[in-house]
Design a protein around this nucleic acid. Structure first.
Length: 860
RNA sequence: GCGGGCGUGGCGGAAUGGUAGACGCAGCGGAUUCAAAAUCCGCCGUCCGGAAGGAUAUGUCGGUUCGAGUCCGACCGCCCGUACCA
C-alpha cells in the first residue's frame, strides 16, 4: 500500500473545490446566510502561525456552516496602509506601493495552500484607490452629517527630525531615529466625533450577548461614564474662577490644593508674564503622549502663589498648583486634590508639604493616613468625620449623591455626567494612508473635494530620503483649485489613521466592486457579520471604531439600521508561542536561533542552547516556525490540525515539533484506516450511516450496537464542540472516536459507515484528508458539500449511570444505578454500601445529598 | 500607573459548583523485525504500600458551601490594552 502523501492529496482537492466554485458567495435569499470573518492581515510579506490559527478557526466555522445548509460568505483582504511600508522605503529604498503589493502577492501565495474556503473573488486591499476612494466619499458624507470636527490634539514632536512620531517610535521618551528628547506639541487635526455617541456605544454593549464579557467590560471601562460634581473655586486674587470636575465631591472637606493642567488657560495666561511658569510648562511637555508615559512620569507641581476660596468656607484659601498629571483632555483640566483619599494626591502633597485632612475613616479599623491613602470601595460603609451634609455612617456612593444634591440645592455646583472616551483623532502626517479629501482655501476655508473628483489618489513620485510627510513637500500634488471658488488652494496633506480603513472593510466585502461604498441590497442580505474572529489586542480600539463607523454609515445612508452593531458574535483567539533558543556571543550578549537549527537542545556544531520559556513568535527572538515549511514537510492539514488541537482557541497555543509530528501521524493513521477498509470494497459493504441505521437490528451483535451508539455520541459531541468554539475538545473526541473505531469488533459494514462519519466530522479541520477518505469510502460528491451528519437523540442516552459516593466530601465508593432511579431510591441503596456503613458505624447520617445522575454525598 | 485576562502532572491541556488530570506529547515496559524505522498493546501526578488501599495535590494565603480548579477577598507571577504599531 502507498503512503499518505499530503502534497498530492491537498493540491488535488483544492483544484476540485475551485472547479466546483463551492466557496464563491452569491446572494441567494432561498438559503439562510452566514457571514464569517477573520480580522484581515497586515501584509508584512510572510504569513505566520498566528494567521494560520486565526484563518483555520474561521475556516472550520465557514465549512461547518456550509455543510449545515447555509449560504456562506468568507472573504479575505489586506489592511495595507501603514507605517511599515514607509519604514521599508526608508530602510531599503523602493516605494511603499511596490513593497505592499509585492508582499500581498507573496502572502496570498503562502495562504492558498492552506485550503481555506475563502471567496477570493472579493479580495481587496485598503490601499487600492477603488477602496480608499470610497472611504473618501464616506468621509465627505460624514463631514456633511456633522460627524467630523477639527480641533487641537497633542502629538509626539521630534525637535531634531522636525516630524511627528508615532507612540511606538518614542523609546524611553526619545525619538527612535534622532535620539532627541521628544516633546508634546499641539496640532490642528481632524476628528471623528465618537464621543457624541459615547452613551449609545456604552448602552448597546448590553445587546452584544455573543461577545466575550471581558471585551464588553474593557469597552465599558474605556468609555468610562462617570457622574460627578462640577463647581467653581472663586479667586482670591484677580483671575477667572477655576471650574473643577470631580467624581469624589464627598471628599471636598479634605481638599488640600487646587490643581490645574499645564495646558489650562490660566497656566497659559500666567506663562505670558512669568518666565518661570513657562519654564515649568516646558518641563511638563517633555516626553511622549501615551497615557502610560503620563501616568508613570514623576509627579511635578508648581505653586502659582495664587489662591482660591473653598466653596463651603470663603475664608478657607486653597493654593493653586500647576501639576503635570492633570490632563486638559479630561473633565475641565482642573481638580481639587484630596490627599487623604487619593494616592496620587497624597504622593503629591508629601512631596510639596501640603496638609492631609481625612473626611472619613474605616468603621472597623480607624487609622490616620500616613503613607497610604484610605480609598475603600464606594459601596463600603465608612464613618464620616468631616462632612457638611450631616452624614454619620454612609457609603462613599451615598455621600457622593448627598453632596451633589446639597451643592445643587445651595447653588454652588451641579451634578454632571462625563465620559473618559475622547474624540477619535484621524489625521496622520504620513504618506502611506488614505488622503483626507479636503482642500484649504484662503477664501472658502476648509472645503470637501467634489465627489466626482474622487479618488484623491496618492501621487507616485515621492521619496523618503528626508524625514516627514512627502505629501507636504510635493511640488504639484498639494496645489489645487478650490472646489468651490476655483481659486488656487492647497490640498490637505494629512492622511487618515489606518484604523479608518479597518472600520468598514467588513461592509465593503458585501459589495467589493461597487461604485459606492456599499450597496444596500447586498449589505442588507449579508450583514451583519455572524462570526468575527481575531486577536484580543483589538478588544478596544478597532472594535469600538467599527461600532462607531457602522452607526455613522447608517446615518449617512450606507448601511441599514440593523447594522448598528456590525458583529453579532465575536471570538478572540490566543497567540501561537514557541520556546526561545539562545546562546551568547563572546561579549555575553544573547544570540537567538531558529527552532529548525536546534536538534536535541544543540546547534549543528554541538553547542548547547539555553531554552527560554515560550513567548509570542517574533522575528527578533527567532522563535518562529514558518507555516510554509510546515506545509512543505507535513501538509496543510497537519498545520491546521495542530493549531486547533492542543489548546483552547481563546488561549495561547505552544508550537512544538513533537506536537506537529503527532498531528501528522494521526492523520496518516486515519488515512490508513480508510485505505484498509477501502480494500474491502468488493464485498459490497459501502454504506452511509443512514443506510446502516435504517436496516440495523439492535440486540443482535453487541459490538455493532456499541459502535453505532459511539458514532452518534461522537456526532453529538464534535458538533457541540465546533458550535461552541471548543475545537480542542472536538479534536479530543475525534481521537477517542478513532481509538474506539480501531478497537471495535463491529462488522466491516458498520465500520465503513462510522469511518465515513469520521471523515465528515474531521472535514472542517482537515478538509483535504476528509475529501480523500470520503472518496475512498464511496461518498457522493465532495464531503465539503455533503450535509452534516445528525445524531439520533435516542442513541445518546445510557440506561445506567455510575454515581460516585462521597463521605464528607471525599470520594469513597461508587455505585451503578439505572439512569432514571429516584433520589429516594438511591439514598436507600447507598446506605447498604460497605464504605458507607463503615463510615456511619451504626449512626444515622446527618445529611444525604443526592444530585441525580451526578453524585451522592453522605455527611456523617 | 490604570483597565482586562490567565496560572492544573515532565509538557500542551480536560473538568454545567459534583469521581481533578479526558485527549495528546514525552517517558517507561512489551509485541512485531536479523536489526531499525514505521506500526500495535500496556503503564504513567507525587508520597507511603507487595497489593488492597491510604495520604497529598489545580500559583500563595484566607473565606463561602454538604462539596471549590470552578464562587468571593488579598497577594505573587505572566500576558493584552493604554487612544499615532497593526
Amino acid at each position: 500500500m502507498s503512503r499518505y502523501s499530503a502534497a498530492e492529496i491537498e493540491t488535488k482537492w483544492q483544484e476540485a473545490w475551485d472547479k466546483a466554485g463551492l466557496f464563491q458567495a452569491k446572494l441567494d435569499r432561498s438559503k439562510p446566510k452566514y457571514y464569517v470573518l477573520e480580522m484581515f492581515p497586515y501584509p508584512s510579506g510572510r504569513i505566520h502561525m498566528g494567521h494560520v490559527r486565526n484563518y483555520t478557526m474561521g475556516d472550520v466555522i465557514a465549512r461547518y456552516k456550509l455543510s449545515t445548509g447555509h449560504n456562506v460568505l468568507h472573504p479575505m483582504g489586506w489592511d495595507a496602509f501603514g507605517m511599515p511600508a514607509e519604514n521599508a522605503a526608508m530602510a531599503i529604498g523602493g516605494h511603499p506601493k511596490d513593497w505592499t503589493y509585492s508582499n500581498i502577492a507573496d502572502m496570498r501565495a503562502q495562504m492558498k495552500p492552506l485550503g481555506l474556503s475563502i471567496d477570493w473573488s472579493r479580495e481587496f486591499a485598503t490601499c487600492d484607490p477603488e477602496y480608499y476612494g470610497q472611504q473618501q466619499a464616506l468621509f465627505i458624507d460624514m463631514l456633511d452629517a456633522g460627524l467630523v470636527a477639527r480641533k487641537n490634539a497633542v502629538v509626539n514632536w521630534d525637535p531634531v527630525d522636525m516630524t511627528v512620531l508615532a507612540n511606538e517610535q518614542v523609546i524611553d521618551g526619545k525619538g527612535w531615529r534622532s535620539g532627541a528628547e521628544v516633546e508634546r506639541r499641539e496640532l490642528t487635526q481632524w476628528f471623528f466625533k465618537i464621543s457624541d455617541m459615547a452613551d449609545e456605544l456604552l448602552s448597546a454593549l448590553d445587546t452584544l450577548d455573543n461577545w466575550p464579557a471581558k471585551v464588553r467590560l474593557m469597552q465599558e471601562n474605556w468609555i468610562g461614564k462617570s457622574r460627578g460634581l462640577q463647581m467653581a473655586f472663586q479667586p482670591v486674587q484677580d483671575f477667572d474662577p477655576i471650574e473643577v470636575y470631580t467624581t469624589r465631591p464627598d471628599t471636598l472637606m479634605g481638599a488640600a490644593f487646587v490643581g490645574i493642567s499645564p495646558d489650562h488657560p490660566l497656566a497659559k495666561t500666567l506663562a505670558e508674564t512669568r518666565p518661570e511658569v513657562e519654564e515649568f510648562r516646558a518641563l511638563c511637555r517633555k516626553g511622549g503622549t501615551t497615557e502610560e508615559a503620563l501616568e508613570t512620569a514623576e509627579k511635578l507641581g508648581f505653586d502659582t502663589g495664587l489662591t482660591v476660596r473653598h466653596p463651603l468656607n470663603p475664608d478657607w484659601h486653597l493654593p493653586v498648583w500647576i501639576a503635570n498629571f492633570i490632563l486638559m483632555d479630561y473633565g475641565t483640566g482642573a481638580i481639587f486634590g484630596c490627599p487623604a483619599h487619593d494616592q496620587r494626591d497624597l504622593d503629591f502633597v508629601r512631596k510639596y508639604d501640603l496638609p492631609v485632612i481625612s473626611t472619613f475613616e474605616s468603621l472597623s479599623d480607624p487609622q490616620p493616613v500616613e503613607a497610604t491613602a484610605y480609598v475603600p470601595p464606594k459601596e463600603e460603609k465608612v464613618k464620616w468625620i468631616n462632612h457638611f451634609a450631616g452624614l454619620d455612617v454612609a457609603t462613599g456612593q451615598e455621600a457622593i449623591d448627598a453632596t451633589i444634591d446639597f451643592a445643587e440645592a445651595q447653588g454652588w455646583g451641579k451634578g454632571v455626567t462625563k465620559f473618559r472616551l475622547r474624540d477619535w483623532g484621524l489625521s496622520r502626517q504620513r504618506y502611506w494612508g488614505c488622503p483626507i479629501p479636503v482642500v484649504h482655501c484662503a477664501d472658502c476655508g476648509v472645503v470637501p473635494e467634489k465627489k466626482e473628483n474622487l479618488p484623491v489618489k496618492l501621487p507616485d513620485d515621492v521619496t523618503f530620503d528626508v524625514p516627514g510627510n512627502p505629501l507636504d513637500r510635493h511640488p504639484t500634488w498639494r496645489d489645487v483649485p478650490c472646489p468651490v471658488c476655483a481659486k488656487p488652494a492647497r490640498r490637505e496633506t494629512d492622511t487618515m489613521d489606518t484604523f479608518v480603513d479597518s472600520s468598514w472593510y467588513f461592509a465593503r466585502f458585501t459589495a467589493p466592486r461597487a461604485e459606492t461604498p456599499t450597496v444596500m441590497e447586498d449589505a442588507d442580505y449579508w450583514m451583519n457579520v455572524d462570526q468575527y474572529i481575531g486577536g484580543i489586542e483589538h478588544a478596544i480600539l478597532h472594535l469600538l471604531y467599527s461600532r462607531f463607523f457602522a452607526r455613522a454609515m447608517h446615518i449617512t445612508g450606507h448601511l441599514p439600521a440593523k447594522c448598528a452593531e456590525p458583529f453579532d458574535a465575536l471570538f478572540t483567539q490566543g497567540m501561537v508561542t514557541h520556546e526561545i533558543y539562545q546562546t551568547r556571543d563572546d561579549k555575553g550578549r544573547p544570540v537567538y536561533h531558529l527552532p529548525e537549527d536546534v536538534v536535541d537542545g544543540k546547534l549543528k556544531d554541538g553547542t548547547p542552547v539555553e531554552v527560554i520559556p515560550s513567548a509570542k513568535m517574533s522575528k527578533s527572538k527567532k522563535n518562529v516556525v514558518d507555516p510554509v515549511n510546515i506545509i512543505r514537510d507535513f501538509g496543510a492539514d497537519t498545520a491546521r490540525w495542530f493549531v486547533l488541537s492542543d489548546s483552547p482557541p481563546e488561549r495561547d497555543v505552544e508550537w512544538t515539533a513533537s506536537g506537529a509530528e503527532a498531528a501528522a501521524k494521526f492523520l496518516a493513521r486515519v488515512w490508513r484506516m480508510a485505505n484498509d477498509l477501502g480494500e474491502q470494497r468488493d464485498s459490497g459493504i459501502a454504506a452511509s450511516l443512514d443506510e446502516v441505521m435504517a436496516s440495523h437490528a439492535f440486540g443482535q451483535n453487541a459490538a455493532d450496537d456499541e459502535l453505532l451508539r459511539t458514532t452518534h455520541k461522537m456526532i453529538d459531541e464534535v458538533t457541540k464542540g465546533i458550535e461552541s468554539f471548543g475545537f480542542n475538545a472536538a479534536i479530543a473526541r475525534i481521537y477517542a472516536f478513532t481509538n474506539a473505531l480501531n478497537r471495535s469488533q463491529a462488522s466491516a459494514r458498520i465500520k465503513w459507515a462510522a469511518t465515513r462519519v469520521l471523515a465528515q466530522l474531521m472535514s472542517p479541520m482537515t478538509p483535504h484528508l476528509a475529501e480523500e477518505v470520503w472518496a475512498i469510502l464511496g461518498g457522493e460528491g465532495l464531503v465539503a458539500a455533503a450535509a452534516w451528519p445528525k445524531a439520533d437523540p435516542a442513541m445518546l442516552v445510557d440506561d445506567s449511570v455510575t454515581l460516585p459516593i462521597q463521605i464528607n466530601g471525599k470520594r469513597r465508593a461508587e455505585i451503578s444505578v439505572p439512569a432514571d432511579m429516584a433520589a429516594a431510591e438511591v439514598e436507600k441503596l447507598i446506605l447498604e454500601v460497605d464504605a458507607v456503613q463503615k463510615a456511619l458505624e451504626g449512626a444515622t447520617p446527618r445529611k444525604i445529598i443526592v444530585v441525580p445522575g451526578r453524585i451522592v454525598n453522605v455527611v456523617v
